[in-house]
Write a protein that binds this DNA or RNA. Sequence first.
DNA 1: TGAAATTAAGTTGTGTACAATATGTTGGCG
DNA 2: CGCCAACATATTGTACACAACTTAATTTCA
Lengths: 163, 163
Amino acid sequence: MERHKDKKKKEKENEADTSKWLLLDNQLCFRLYSASKALTSAYDPMLKPLDLTYPQYLAMMVLWEKDDISVGEIGERLNLDSGTLSPLLKKLEAKNILVRARSATDERMVTIKLTTKGHDLKKKVLKVPTQMICRIDLNEKEIADLSKRLDFLMSNLVKTAED
Amino acid sequence: MERHKDKKKKEKENEADTSKWLLLDNQLCFRLYSASKALTSAYDPMLKPLDLTYPQYLAMMVLWEKDDISVGEIGERLNLDSGTLSPLLKKLEAKNILVRARSATDERMVTIKLTTKGHDLKKKVLKVPTQMICRIDLNEKEIADLSKRLDFLMSNLVKTAED
DNA sequence: TGAAATTAAGTTGTGTACAATATGTTGGCG
DNA sequence: CGCCAACATATTGTACACAACTTAATTTCA
């Protein structure tokens, strides 16, 4: 595949070089897309007994770390906009896991507070990340390493988005 | 963070050890979820002039590699079921990019064939992967490396899903 | 051969995602 | 003070994703 790389041929290879990146198996992006879906569906059976979807679980993780914050703050943390979060948080409110209320000081904002049920849910969910780490079957160093690469990739995408 | 690891304390750390994995910033899965979304939204402006979404682009990549295949074969390649593919392929048919037709030999199957417009679209799309590689800003080795890790992760998830 | 199991695709219902827009609130600023 | 740009959230519309179910065709095998 990497033979015959003398300069005369290199230009001729350009077209082939370009279209080899169009092969699905060569696409990093497709792997990320697939891996992300696979992870979500791996979470689902663990979260189902807790009546949570994966995005709902993410929102809860934000709230377990710090309660009494605005919709916008959650969105900043998860990279989700109000179009996604508004209905999601309404569903969590319908399950009595949290309460939404207009802020008294700034009525543009909606403040999210966990209920007792919402706080208690954290105990039940503690085993989920551990189970997931087992299934991923990577050690702590490998996870950190992969995380670092993904962070680098993300920052490049964000950086070049400002054009 | 890694100090004080004598055996007496290790057991006491268990609970803290467990809940540290519940922190969003420690979650590999959240990074994958975010990276996947970021990549899709990076594709969108490139694909918009071609009137394709990212999942539609993936389906087209499969078809550019091998035409005249069934819905199921596309789904196997992309890990998508008929619930996702049926409407997606109908949209591509409405754009005159492909044609869907019941197979003559097995009428349960629907065979997908690219139209001339569908084949021609490949030329216009050739620059997309190259542009994306620039934005990702990883060299060929780093991409291969990251891909390998994601493949490993995926195979672990699939493997442990058979329980 | 013919009923039952299997298979392929489509449909329905729920839940994200996000662009674009709407609505109400707040903070300037002339 | 009053107007207006900026802001926070909600709503609408489009497009996945997938579980569960339906429909129709094929295969299996008693």
